[in-house]
Amino acid sequence: TETYETTDETEARKIAEELKRRGLTFRIERHGTTIRIESD
């Protein structure tokens, strides 16, 4: 499991693209301005 936290929408998108490219599944949670991406 890898966890990323960012407040930057663009960075979050880049992380999501990278995880997809590596064939990982992940979920995105939003907590206020923080975007949390957690891979399975």
Rank of each mutant, 00 (worst) to 15 (best):
T3N: 06
T33F: 11
D40S: 13
D8E: 05
E2M: 14
E9K: 05
E9H: 06
G32R: 02
R30S: 05
L19E: 00
T1M: 11
T34W: 10
T25L: 09
E2H: 13
I15H: 05
R22A: 04
E2P: 05
E29T: 15
E17F: 11
E5F: 12
R13K: 10
Y4N: 00
I35R: 01
E9G: 04
K20S: 10
E9W: 14
I37F: 04
E17R: 12
L19M: 07
Y4C: 05
T34E: 03
L19A: 00
G23A: 02
T3P: 03
L24V: 09
D40E: 11
T3E: 05
E29W: 14
I37V: 04
I28A: 02
R27K: 11
I37D: 01
L19V: 01
K14M: 13
A16D: 01
S39F: 14
E17W: 12
T1I: 13
A16G: 06
D40I: 15
D8A: 03
E5T: 11
E11I: 12
T25E: 08
T6G: 03
I37A: 01
R30T: 08
D8C: 09
E2T: 13
T33R: 10
T3R: 12
T34Q: 06
K14F: 09
E9T: 05
D8R: 03
R21Y: 05
E17M: 12
E2N: 10
R21N: 07
E11Y: 09
T10W: 12
E5W: 14
D40C: 15
E29V: 14
G32M: 03
I35F: 09
F26D: 03
I35E: 01
I28D: 02
D40H: 13
G23M: 03
D8F: 05
I28K: 02
D40W: 15
L19R: 00
E5M: 08
T34F: 10
A12N: 00
E9S: 06
E11F: 09
L24D: 02
Y4V: 03
T33V: 10
T6D: 00
T1N: 10
T10L: 12
S39T: 15
R22E: 00
T33A: 13
E5N: 05
K14P: 00
E18I: 09
T7G: 06
E29G: 06
I37R: 01
G32V: 00
K20P: 00
E29F: 15
F26A: 05
G32D: 04
R21L: 07
R30V: 13
D8M: 04
S39D: 02
H31T: 10
R21P: 00
E9F: 08
G32N: 04
R27P: 02
R13A: 12
T1F: 14
R36L: 07
R13G: 07
T25I: 09
E18F: 12
I15P: 00
I35G: 00
R21G: 06
E9R: 06
G23T: 01
T1E: 07
I28M: 07
T25H: 14
A16W: 09
R30G: 03
Y4Q: 01
E9M: 08
I15Q: 02
E2K: 11
R36G: 02
R22L: 06
Y4W: 13
E18N: 11
R22Q: 05
T33Q: 12
T7Q: 11
A16V: 15
